[in-house]
Amino acid sequence: MAGYHILAFFVGFILDMLFGDPYWLPHPIRLIGNLIAALDRKLLGENDKKNPFFRGVILVLAVTGSTVAVTAALLILAYRIWLPAGVILESIMTYQILAAKCLKVESMKVYQALETGDIEASRKAVSMIVGRDTAQLDQTGVAKAAIETVAENTSDGVIAPMIYTAIGGPVLGFLYKAINTMDSMVGYKNDRYMLFGRAAAKLDDVVNFIPARISVLLMIFACLFTDRDFRKGERRTVVCRRAYKIWKRDRFCHASPNSAQTESVCAGALGIRLAGDASYFGKIVKKPYIGDATYPVEIEDIPRVNELMYRTAAICEILCILILCLLS
């Protein structure tokens, strides 16, 4: 079965790189999101119920348990019916777990709007991929938000799910995505979710701890394979050394132990300053800066960070397949 898993893992990666998520198809992550939203309403309601932390634990158990059960049942059934059907289903599931192309497409919508000078369109485009308030962002703020999203999600949306899928197939891959989706929906530190979302948020920190640091190593290595004009014609070794330097200094400049890991690498590679204060739900949240303002943030940094993300994903895929082949 190892050979089938390796084949499906490779095919799923290629499908994601080529096509991304077709918006006209129902996506499993949206279904998981709908389940989380329904359980949120049922378990927490109008935020007047007792023991919100315990209810949050129930949410985590219900979502993760149902995700694993459904994914495993579908795969087992497909493989028992016909081996090629199992490989096809596993390939499609792997394709749905990864999000490199989707991340690039959505961030490049921001880039294209900025290129035309349409600030309102760019704010709307970036609001689709960030959790912060975007109505008051200027061109630099919009570009920074898009760059930070790609940087952070290089780990959360690409490398971490790739690693988990390589280890445990779509069952473990979708389990990771379910945890990550819960954190994005209920992991806020506001009055409603401070206790209810704590279990999901802490679990997300745990499952991302090692993948985030693997992502850092892969991303720094990927700096050696960027295009020659990646950053003002600088040598790749200069970009690589600066990425390492800023990561070493700023990797913990975030409330989460993981979020600043890849963001600091990207800030260093691009030679720009990211993060800083941001508005969430109408309230300013104080955040330290990440990186140095060696260069001003510009809209061309959006395709640059996407290039770095793609290079990192390709390196991770190759390494995962080599390790799987050696272990099979």
Rank of each mutant, 00 (worst) to 15 (best):
I159E: 07
G268T: 04
E263N: 01
N258E: 01
M108L: 15
M182P: 10
G20C: 05
F10I: 15
L18V: 10
C325L: 15
A275T: 02
A135V: 10
L319G: 02
Y4C: 09
T262A: 06
T134N: 09
L43H: 11
E115N: 14
G268I: 04
L77F: 06
E263G: 01
K189W: 00
G187H: 07
A199I: 01
F209W: 15
N51M: 12
S122G: 10
I32W: 01
E317W: 13
I97M: 02
Y23R: 10
D204T: 06
L39N: 12
T67G: 11
F13T: 13
I318F: 15
F196C: 06
V297W: 00
D191S: 10
V186L: 07
V142L: 14
R192T: 07
T71Q: 11
M93C: 08
S107T: 13
D21G: 01
G197N: 04
G56P: 10
R132I: 02
P296L: 08
N47T: 12
R235I: 00
E148W: 13
I210N: 11
M128W: 15
A212T: 08
S155T: 13
G65K: 10
I163M: 15
D205N: 06
K287N: 14
N258T: 02
A178T: 08
I214R: 05
E263D: 02
F281I: 03
D277G: 02
S107R: 03
S184Y: 06
V57E: 05
L18M: 12
I302V: 14
V238L: 12
I302P: 09
V285A: 09
S328Q: 13
D40V: 03
G157I: 09
S279T: 14
R235L: 08
E46C: 00
I302H: 10
P257E: 07
A143M: 12
A73K: 00
I321K: 11
R235E: 12
K177N: 06
R304E: 13
A2I: 09
T226Y: 02
